[in-house]
Design a binder for these strands. Structure first.
Lengths: 199, 199, 199, 199
DNA sequence: TATGAATGAGGCTTCATTCAT
DNA sequence: AATGAATGAAGCCTCATTCAT
């Protein structure tokens, strides 16, 4: 993780530049994005970015760690509420969609680049998060199988992947300014995943 | 699409090299892959690849178009069978998982790079395939809603994306040599998607 | 040469900054030193240095010309004293070591960078000094050979370089706060050079 | 240290390029030298150097380690001969000048850049060599003091530096194609250092 | 006096590609 | 079929310098 050099939160020039960078990374992919593209879009010269950031990598770092920090704060509230499995499930999905509203480009980047980036020491926290994520969902699914909320024959590891992919892939096409709010989309998703699309 | 310079099908040095290239593209991403990496892994020098292929791009092209050709042959059989919606659904999922067994790296590449590549004229067929895919699934879902196999209130565009993402993302972690066969995985998926994971 | 913008001598903020710059140049080399390093060490921002100095080059200029001015003042006293060769020799060595005490970083810079810098018009005085230096030492050595103080077979150009290198290289490791004073080091050097290290 | 990728010794394109690089480094200093300058002088494009070498640094590495390897081979013969101090002294000086004939640019680079480069792990061997060098000379000087070949009151650490600087600085101006051979220069040096320049 | 933000030139390096052999 | 050597464009980054505040 990286701690921003100055300013409190998402304010000031740094934050602006990070937002721009995140958009471009999300659109074109981390590798395919050149610092010049980011700079052009932000209205300065490529070299000038280095007044604000150490490297292209550290921009990605800051974007991803800010997202994951927020995400885990949200998840933690749900964990601590100790709800029954089905409510926990709904809570996690809703929280995920809510974070997409704030961090949509970050989610796309996470989705596309996490595996590659996680190989580097500096992005270690990506694997950590991944692992924590898996534990959280797996526990929830298992609790549901145990108390009968979820189907007895559920293959938990497969179901975990199913849920994980389904939820996060949505970030790629989900547009907050679209007709549906995050909460509405979350509800549809939950319904489909829990009850299926068949009658 | 691209027509191989020589040899009929997946035989000979070309095919070997393509397989190697596909693996590396899948592992590291198209942009992050250098022709040197491919060459190293195949045991020749980077420049020597150009005896076999016109460019890095044409390798990706050949890999992707071979995959899509096979995939659509499979889908076509199912379309032509004119089965009821639920059976069509099962057939498409099973066929998708079956193609993953043959073309796993190609699927991963498709998943990760299609959007970016499709911008180029030469990869136009990627968008075409995407569109055809959408029509096929949407039609199937709509037929199911109409005949009562699928839930009346189903939001078809959302459900389409749901299914699409779920199925193809599996390619990233699905390993054919794993404990489960493609058919088994397909069955689990179908069951989850159609009937949900809740009781 | 450069004339300081304001303040008379080695006083005030300018002088402080110059001292810092000299230290860094000496430690890391002129090219390898960034103005940011100097600024960091002095406790201001890189851009702020430009309130005090025209350029990085002009800092080096001021450092070197201050040193050479002092050095030649010292040498001149010895020249004017018209001592016999051996005493002149001793005097020059002692004076050189004395200047090292005041201008140690400048000496190191001079030693390492003079040749490169001298190519620029603005540092012309470095070559001039070099030439004057050579004449002074050569004359002294020749006088010594002529009057029998120095060995008859002495190859004066070689001996000149020998003395020059020996004396100035000492600046790199010589530390005034060490156990030995400049005068003591000078005496040891003089003894070694004049009488050799063998019995 | 670095081991050349291929070819036995100083032959082939690599060796040519290294020789060019060494010259430029020696003339302009390592930092002030751009890879473009080296490439221009060698008649290719800057990027093409990277077919032969990993980095600018690795060129310097190869140049310096080749020099030090040869140098220590020469020194070792002298150490093993177990000559009396004065003869050892003469032998070391002569060997040093001889290596200058083969590796003149390397010596200049060593002289100017060793301290800075040695800070990096990859150039660790520079410090090692430096230390070994100090031990060798110090031992020789001490033996000479002990057996009466050198003056009893000799300050060995100071004398060591004196000799070290004197010998290696010569590399900067010494030209093998000049009127004097390495052996002749070595003899003059030895005579000056051992017996002094005074009568 | 100093800061914060930027410029613009240039440095090192990578990489797809070419081509004579 | 493949190698060895090179090209040329482009990428990331550094750094001296400028300037409004």
């Amino acid at each position: 993780m990286v701690t921003p050099k100055k300013n409190p939160a998402g304010t000031g020039r740094r934050a602006e530049l990070l937002a721009t960078a995140a958009e471009v990374f999300a659109e074109q992919g981390y590798n395919a994005t050149t610092v010049r593209t980011i700079a052009d879009r932000a209205g300065l010269l490529a070299g000038s970015l280095y007044y604000h950031f150490d490297s292209k990598e550290s921009m990605a770092d800051e974007i991803l760690s800010a997202f994951l920090t927020d995400l885990w704060q949200g998840y933690q509230r749900i964990e601590e509420a100790c709800l029954p499995p089905r409510e926990t499930f709904e809570g996690l999905v809703t929280e995920s969609f809510r974070q997409m509203e704030r961090h949509r480009p970050a989610v796309v980047i996470y989705q596309k680049e996490a595996r590659r980036l996680a190989a580097q020491e500096r992005f270690r926290y990506l694997s950590d998060s991944q692992e924590r994520f898996q534990k959280l969902w797996t526990r929830t699914l298992e609790r549901g199988v145990a108390d009968g909320s979820f189907r007895r024959e559920l293959d938990v590891p497969v179901a975990y992947r199913f849920v994980r992919d389904t939820v996060w892939m949505a970030a790629v096409w989900f547009r907050p300014q679209g007709r549906k709010s995050a909460a509405q989309i979350a509800e549809q998703y939950t319904s489909m995943v829990l009850d299926g699309i068949a009658t």
